[in-house]
Design a protein around this nucleic acid. Structure first.
Lengths: 247, 247
DNA sequence: CGGTCTCTTGACCTCTGTCAAGTAGAGTGG
DNA sequence: CCACTCTACTTGACAGAGGTCAAGAGACCG
């Protein structure tokens, strides 16, 4: 049942969906009323592996996670980054086998729905079905921007772009907006995100700091000057389709 | 009406959908019966521009097209490649503004549905709605593989990978299967596809030819040795989700 | 307080980009 | 059928961004 306590749990997921789709109170209650469980994972644990068949629909409730693929030779590439509130696997409702690995970046907590329950929800509530598709499409749009980033921007712009994206995506689900962007990634993970090497990430972070675009305190990285970072990255947020309402 | 002649027109689109989804005869007839028009475009003409709002649903009937984004500084990146049979823009049904450019690579012919007609079709025929989502998800999967390609493979493997992908995707809609893959792209377009420069594409093609993986005749490029090309590219076709039926 | 995992830094290397000039085809017009 | 032109392709010399290797310095953890 959609009790107040339940709603609180799903808050961040709802906020994510509402950032790009319109859902009635009934829709929101229906989501909150869906049976679910919780799951905690430590950093680097797998949520889903390439080739697997899943029967759950996990939502990221706290922490960061990512989609990842690797070449034969061991080159690893992070192909999507998920933040709190993000649904992690709608794909398994429609496609037989998983084509990538889904892995925890930090320690994470998941809300886990049964795939069959979520499918039933979609069939009875068209607005939710639509929100699911919009969410899928926005992830695809982010993927396209990443392709542009990897293909046509140098290390400095690439890193700056990622930090900008993170900043704006976090804004959309956090009500305590401000700036927040404490980057929780190791330099190796940043390298896997951007198709670079850890050593070069290190050099590039140093350069961003030298220019005053970011501030660092030990291992913590924070945005120092968003405007400058945006300029360095040639960043525009249209590809995030924020506030898409009534598409 | 779904006359035999109409069905013939839509054949390649249906074949594309059937390569990953199951559609009843009624579903197929419903698609063939949908009002539509045709449109011819010359190479490089725009089908849709970033920021536009579209009210049509174009299907690629002949020729090649692509999605493209550019940085401020003029760096251009092709972020998706569309071949005959591919739907080109389901996104406009769900999302307000277009986040990339859609452009003809060769001379192309399009089948054009009204967006509102296609939306109505989806609401009355769940199997078609499902096929649309599967199609969107497969494009996203291809995007992820491209990210891996750009981030973690060198020029030789990247180019080989693209050629392999093209080969298998063309197989799925052409009944006269064989090998076919006559690459219709200029070296500049290959460069924009792979995040490289035309000069380096030239060098890399030469190297692929030297190794016997491809054959060239003037400007025409053909696959010479698929097995070798696959080996060079570390290619597996799972990400294409061919024959996904009954997901 | 030893062990392990990151981060940092420097020296060196290489893949890919840049620049520039030349060649080859595909049309076009005479 | 032959210039003429355009565009694409080639090729070489050189430059530079980013990769590789290796060693040392901090952090964090039991």
């Amino acid at each position: 049942m959609g009790t107040r306590a339940e709603l609180r749990r799903h808050d961040i997921f709802l906020r994510k969906l509402l950032s790009h789709s319109l859902l009635s109170d009934e829709d929101q209650d229906a989501i909150a009323a869906l049976p679910h469980s919780y799951r905690h994972l430590e950093p680097n644990e797998y949520i889903l592996r390439e080739g697997d068949r899943s029967d759950t629909c996990p939502i990221l409730w706290s922490g960061f996670a990512y989609r990842q693929k690797a070449t034969e030779e061991g080159g690893r590439q992070i192909v999507a980054l998920k933040i709190p509130g993000d649904p992690m696997d709608f794909q398994s409702m429609y496609v037989r086998t998983t084509d990538h690995n889904l892995q925890a970046l930090t320690a994470v907590d998941l809300i886990v729905f049964a795939l069959s329950d979520f499918e039933r929800l979609i069939h009875t509530r068209p607005a939710i079905a639509r929100a699911v598709i919009v969410d899928i499409l926005i992830e695809a749009s982010i993927g396209r921007e990443w392709l542009l980033n990897m293909g046509r921007r140098n290390a400095l712009a690439r890193l700056a772009h990622l930090l900008c994206e993170l900043h704006y995506r976090l804004l959309d689900t956090r009500t305590d907006g401000l700036d927040v962007s404490d980057v929780p990634m190791t330099q190796e993970q940043l390298a896997d995100l951007l198709g670079l090497t850890p050593v070069h990430i290190n050099r590039t972070l140093k350069e961003l700091e030298r220019r005053g675009a970011i501030a660092r305190n030990g291992r913590r990285v924070r945005i120092g000057n968003l405007a400058q970072l945006r300029a360095l990255a040639d960043f525009t947020d249209t590809y995030l389709h924020r506030h898409n309402h009534a598409g």
